[in-house]
Amino acid sequence: MLGYIIKRLLQLIPVFIVVSMIIFSIIHLVPGDPIDSMMQIGSTPEQRAELTARYGLDKPLPVQYGIWLAKMLRGDLGEAIILRQPVTALIAQNLPHSLLLGVLALAFSTIVGIVAGALAAVFKDSWIDRSVMTLILLGSTVPSFWLGLLLILLFAVQLGWFPVSGARTWSALVLPVLAIGLGGIALVARVTRVAMLDIARRDFVMMLHAKGLSRWRIQFGHILRHALLPVVTILSLRIGWILGGAVTIEYVFARPGLGSLLITSLNQRDYPVVQGCLLMLAIAVMLGTLIGDLVQAAMDPRVRDSST
């Protein structure tokens, strides 16, 4: 297992280099002079020269990338143009909020998705199955930000049960987690249902019936246990989607977080912050996928054996 972990970590290095190159190049690919896009109206030529020197834009591109990478690895992501603070400090303020929301949404959608998918499989073609299938259809078609707005309308504006926005209390997490969760629940429930129905047709299940085991024990003690493997596989592949959902939902609920910071900075064209946020989100997606892979390898020896 240790060998597998090291191998997967080493595989991340080229991915990280490519992603960091793309994010580094943003500032050079924006139409026009990158300094023009960074300068505020009324800036002086001295400020322009100072900015050019600070970002090392007079040096060759590979050198610039090397300097940027070295600074980044030391935790220096530059300074925000509009907010006039170090980007690292801004990220440090916002990251915990995004992590909390992402982890809670992931846990919520996994647990509820497995339960819903399992119930749909056990009671196939019943009203439970049809309700879960409808939930799956809605979860994969309703935009999460609209769902978030509807939840605000109903539970915050009309009923007043939860705060409309912000992140001051724990109750402010409920609606965002629900809004992100529905898409995740749809995905997990669909995979669980299909996997359970597929495993229920296998020979060993017939054997369990022949041994006289109760229906519930077969369904939840054996079939569901085997069905969890494809669920973990799909979650490890799609973990980024749930984190992506957090980006959108933070903005809807005006919660602090990397997503809100990114969207605000994109609208203000504050490129150092945009780069910092995108880099952190990309790292979060890579690490999330890695954790998913490791869980999958821990559960299934075939995964770690096939890749060594």
């Binding site: 991915v15 924006v30 592949l237 959108t248 990114l262 994109l266």
Partner: peptide, 21 residues
């Protein structure tokens, strides 16, 4: 494979950062 693990919204945001809104 590289882009597969990244959510479409993140890829789109990176590109919008480059091309502009």
């Amino acid at each position: 494979d590289l882009s597969w693990s990244f959510p479409e919204i993140l890829i789109a945001l990176i590109l919008i950062a480059i091309v502009g809104p």
